[in-house]
Amino acid sequence: MTVVPAPPPAAPQRPGLAGMITLGLWALAAIGLVTWLVSVWNPDLVARYGPLYLSGLGTTVLLVCLSFIVGAIISVPIAFGRMARNPVARILSFLFVYFFRGTPLIAQIFLIYYGFGSFRPQLEAAHLWWFFRDAWYCAVFSLSLNTGAYQAEILRGAIESVPRGQWEGARSLGLTRTTIFLKVILPQAMIVALRPYANEIILMVKASAIVAIITVFDLMGETRRAYSRTFDFQTYIWAALFYLAIVEGLRHLTNFAERRLTRHLKR
């Protein structure tokens, strides 16, 4: 074993001129934003739209949680279809994933919410029209299918990342396939999948803003309503602050969870 030479001392870490200027610009922007928000502070506006924003926030959280769970359920058969030996299952699940990952979410939502109106007589005959008539159900439905396709790829990648030797080792112990999958493969796959899943939740929080276009009153929908009534630009600034807080909170939570769950892998 060769002796590794000590790394050279790190360069002095202090802001230079360029750093000062760019930081100064950010500080100026922040001060400008805060003073502007203080100057346009309007108790009536907050009293009227504050509760609406909070209910919109609740709608966004509910939408994301519900779609994420339904998407997780959808993703299981799709992921196994992608890994199956049966060519029909492979092709069908591939097409599902390709469609939902290759088209914009907003186009998918329009296709479901407006497009399914073309089949109104058939849907009414099947007693499904109440579902596709309602913007909220359509939003949950399309967001679930969309995230289901993405989650299927996360799940497949995570399961395939577990080395074959793990399967073989467990088989040599005489475990059944189900036990191997649930007790050996899945726990290891989930550690790999943790970060992609967390990223998917963050992407969903951001993507869920699109449902405001089909008149679901989530955080973005309430913002659009407040803006269309008041023409006060601060409505959008508040929405931006809300979304940034959610996304940053989730990001830090993920980092914490990952550190905590991979303690046993540290040496």
Binding site: V205, K206, A207, S208, A209, I210, A212, I213, M220, T223, R224, Y227, F233, Y236, I237, A239, A240, Y243, L244, V247, E248, R251
Partner: peptide
């Protein structure tokens, strides 16, 4: 961190 749609509105109206 911002939703793309919100960034668009911020730019378009702002």
């Amino acid at each position: 961190g911002l939703p793309e749609l919100l960034t668009l509105f911020l730019v378009y109206f702002g």
